[in-house]
Design a binder for these strands. Structure first.
Length: 449
RNA sequence: CGGGGUAUAGCUCAGCUUGGUAGAGCACUGGUUUUGGGAACCAGGGGUCGCAUGUUCGAAUCCUGCUGCCCCGACCA
């Protein structure tokens, strides 16, 4: 993409409403624009990141055996009356009446609807297990939306729903999602720790929240520091094998959010030098809730004995639009965002310091087309801004690798290469640029590990 | 939902106390000179001062009501 043909409205000044760093940087980098309290447009740069995040989530869900579908944003109230949640959910749920005076709602979550889909088609235990998911916009009319897209009213969420014959089988489904989540966050460059959590209005018996440690987190968490460095299951993990040893390994160390954490137990279980008490951002949550929805809504199958039983369900959410600011909270410096390659809006940026100079432009054009041919996602700053402005913008929008082309380098046949994360700069011969980039970028995509 | 704040150009803000032709910086347009860490100069364009009502010869400024947005708290699969 040529910057001169792109839409990247960066801001030099900090918008006054933005309190936390990710919100400020998303506004300044031209990723989002607020339309009303808790409602945001995603501008091209932000949208591109969001789509990369979504794609990783989908790949890992598919790998774990979940099947993607798409449910509507609007739902009939009657479904929610069946589960009893139409009245229970409160004012957070946006209720709508259509022209026929029918009661609708903008879905805050989809347990009822997926249960309806399930019960209309699945009648036999032979069709289990089943895990269906979608990525769809949700609306929760938060009393106080804040922190940009971290807590917005409208947000994009991946929600998966598992159906099993009994509790043991349901635990296997739960474990698959547990492993898939570990891999999902890892691929995005995030260190997310699974913690015991409260089940809240979704209800149920078993739940884990995946938490990123960050000062701006909204909840207090307690955990064992060894969890920060644990190995992540690799791409060739067999989801049909017994995953319980992996889950046991992760859950044997203390990790809990403050609404369920027993501080005395924490201090008893974790040695002093391993204790982490910190703020955390919730980037996903797993629930097992048994027959909470299947029973009232009649989602049953016939088991091998010919007996009709309510299925055991779980649900598994990842807030796509929350992950984007969460990554920024975890990865930035005073100059701007530092994107992990796997979710970066572009992998490389070429800075043409003299767009009006024929030699400079020729070198840049060549690199640009070679990098595109090598399947590298490249942004070419071909604008005629000053060098300082270009450096500042490149740092702000956080492209992992910068190639600086100016008269100096053109004369000596070199490009200046800068690693955004480390700040390290070195000159490399123009002939070796593409290979250097390819060798760096491909592994950091984390799509083969 | 309780408490506090705020609303003037695309952004950050001044002007309001004490009513009298709507301002600055950045951004934008044209031009000249520049060019390796947010260039300089010259000339321009851009505003129902959140909305409504009242007071007044005259309201961005004073009164009243409403709305939006932000912060703190409670809430938050």
């Amino acid at each position: 993409m040529r910057l001169s043909n792109y839409f990247l409205p960066v801001l030099k000044e900090v918008p006054k409403d933005a309190e936390i760093v990710s919100h400020r940087l998303m506004l300044r980098a031209g990723m989002i624009r607020q339309q009303a309290a808790g409602l945001y447009s995603w501008l091209p740069l932000g949208f591109k990141v969001m789509q990369k995040v979504q794609k990783i989530v989908e790949q890992e869900q598919n790998r774990a055996g979940a099947i993607e579908l798409l449910m509507p944003t609007l739902q009939p109230a009657d479904l929610w009356r069946e589960s009893g949640r139409y009245d229970a959910y409160g004012k957070e749920m946006l209720r709508i009446t259509d022209r026929g005076e029918r009661d609708l709602l903008y879905g805050p979550t989809n347990e009822e609807m997926i249960t309806d889909i399930f019960r209309s088609s699945i009648k036999s235990y032979k069709d289990l297990p089943l895990n269906l998911y979608h990525v769809q916009w949700k609306f929760r009319d938060e009393v106080r939306p804040r922190f940009g897209t971290m807590r917005s009213r409208e947000f994009l969420m991946k929600d998966a729903y598992s159906f099993d014959l009994n509790e043991d089988e349901a635990a296997k489904s739960y474990n698959k999602m547990f492993v898939a989540y570990l891999r999902t966050y890892y691929r995005m460059g995030l260190t997310a720790i699974p913690m015991r959590a409260d089940t809240g209005p979704i209800g149920g018996e078993l739940s884990h929240e995946f938490i990123i440690i960050a000062d701006t987190g909204e909840s207090e968490v307690y955990c064992h520091s060894d969890l920060l460095n644990k190995a992540i299951p690799s791409i060739d993990i067999d989801y049909n094998s017994d995953l319980s040893s992996i889950i046991d390994d992760w859950t044997s160390l203390f990790a809990a959010t403050d609404d369920v954490a027993d501080v005395a137990e924490f201090e008893n279980a974790v040695p002093n030098d391993k204790r982490i008490k910190a703020r955390g951002i919730e980037v996903g949550q797993l629930f097992y809730f048994g027959d909470k929805y299947s029973k009232p809504m009649g989602a049953t199958v016939t088991d091998s004995n010919g007996k009709e039983v309510a299925v055991h369900m779980g649900s598994y959410g990842i807030g796509i639009t929350r992950i984007v600011p969460a990554i920024i909270e975890a990865s930035h410096d005073e100059n701007g965002i530092i994107w992990p390659v796997s979710v970066a809006p572009f992998e490389v940026i070429i800075l043409n310091l003299r767009a009006k100079d024929e030699e400079c432009s020729k070198v840049c054009e060549n690199l640009y087309s070679e990098l595109k041919s090598a399947n590298i996602d490249v942004l070419y700053d071909d604008t005629d801004q000053g060098a300082g402005a270009k450096f500042a913008t490149a740092d702000l929008i956080g492209i992992p690798f910068q190639l600086v082309i100016g008269p100096r380098g053109v004369k000596s046949g070199e490009a200046e290469f800068k690693n955004r994360a480390s700040g390290e700069k070195n000159n490399i011969p123009l002939s070796g640029v593409v290979q250097t980039i390819v060798d760096l970028v491909i592994p950091q995509r984390r799509d083969k590990i």
